[in-house]
Design a protein around this nucleic acid. Structure first.
Lengths: 147, 147
DNA sequence: TAAACTAATTATAACAATTATAAATTAAGA
DNA sequence: TCTTAATTTATAATTGTTATAATTAGTTTA
């Protein structure tokens, strides 16, 4: 399954005329198999072993390229650094305010609110972003024990 | 109306034991009357005339204080710097991907999706964040003329 | 009202994420 | 294989934000 994702992604690069370098291959592979929505630095560190000479700039450059061709989504939260998410089918994120964990969940599109906003503001709507914030099960346990 | 907001905000500061300084007064005033969701630097520049000696740190410190007492919301988008929004009643934002304009609109809460996410993930839900992206009316006109 | 205490401001330096630059390298088509 | 333009690397620069320490100013208490 993730193998198919990788093949699809490489196909996308080919058709959009983006060269497939070993670094790009590795970054994509890591993003696909990673369930943790890594930061640029996470990716850099994870690939240090395979590419001892890789520059941080390469990671940033390629994440931008991937974003531009629609393979990757950039998630910006309050904290300093962006997180990157390989785009598969549409899903939303729920984020633990205690430990920062991000969990995916699926939900039918919010067409209604998009339509409403478009009516009210006169904008032409393209997309939306939704996140839910709360406390994950394991942090809940911890906070109960503290009390 | 915005006068009331200011009074309410000052009241909140008083009850939470946060000192009301001229700088804080001015930052709040600016945030309330501003319809543009300014960055910290916008605020700093706007108050330069009134407070020639004010430090950027003061702006950041106070925005953090305001956020902590719930007067202000920090909005982080892809671009480098955060934007700050005086919290009135609940509203959402629609953002123009062309010119960056942010427009408020009201919509009933999305309790259903919060509840759903909570069920599916086991999180305890606190809040959510929703933004709509699109093209604002004036940018639409421009892009039509270009074609 | 004055003194004392504490919080806030200022100026500055430090930091960290990201981007720009230029030289060296390399993927991919002819 | 050769050529060319894209990519990588190494490094420096930039920028938003935070930390620090000294100064200033609100607030409380006597």
């Amino acid at each position: 399954m993730s193998e198919t994702h990788l093949q699809d992604a490489l196909g996308t690069l080919k058709t959009t005329g983006v060269r497939i370098t070993p670094q790009r291959h590795a970054i994509l592979e890591f993003l696909i198999q990673s369930m943790t929505h890594p930061t640029a630095d996470d990716i850099y560190k994870a690939l240090e072993g395979k590419f001892p000479n890789m520059s941080v700039a390469t990671v940033y450059n390629n994440l931008r390229v991937f974003r531009e061709v629609g393979l990757v989504k950039e998630l910006t939260y309050g904290d300093s650094s962006s997180r990157f998410d390989f785009v598969t089918n549409d899903h939303y994120h729920i984020i633990c305010e205690c430990c920062g964990k991000i969990v995916d969940f699926h939900y039918p599109g919010l067409d209604e609110i998009e339509h409403f906003a478009s009516q009210v503001t006169g904008f032409e709507v393209n997309a939306h972003r939704l996140e839910i914030y709360g406390t994950c099960p394991s942090c809940k346990v911890v906070s109960e024990n503290v009390q």
